[in-house]
């Protein structure tokens, strides 16, 4: 079920998802601003990251998000990963 981890594709998906959440147009999402600065709550952040994990077959430690808090940084970071072979609970 894992898809490619092309950072551009991932960033586009994540931007679209955040735009939906924040009720903004995707072009209004600044990919260089930390998610908390965009107004994403910590619970939403976790939920979106869980969706990202499921969609791309990744395991994303929360510490990664803290170290790479923007859409751009997170997606470039994650692009370096190969999808993990894990069975999800």
């Amino acid at each position: 079920m894992s898809r490619s981890t092309d950072p551009a594709e991932m960033a586009a998906w994540l931007t679209g998802r955040l735009a939906e959440l924040l009720e903004l147009a995707p072009e209004e999402i600044d990919v260089t601003v930390p998610l908390d600065g965009l107004g994403v709550t910590s619970m939403e952040e976790v939920t979106v990251v869980a969706e990202l994990e499921e969609r791309y077959g990744l395991t994303i430690p929360v510490a990664d998000l803290r170290r790479h808090p923007t859409v751009e940084a997170l997606c470039s970071h994650l692009a370096g990963f190969t999808p993990a072979e894990v069975s999800r609970p």
């Binding site: 009720e23 965009l38 107004g39 709550t41």
Partner: peptide, 15 residues
Amino acid sequence: RRRVRAAVAERHGVR
């Protein structure tokens, strides 16, 4: 709307 929602979410964790 955008400014209020972002500011409150950032500071209080609720939008």
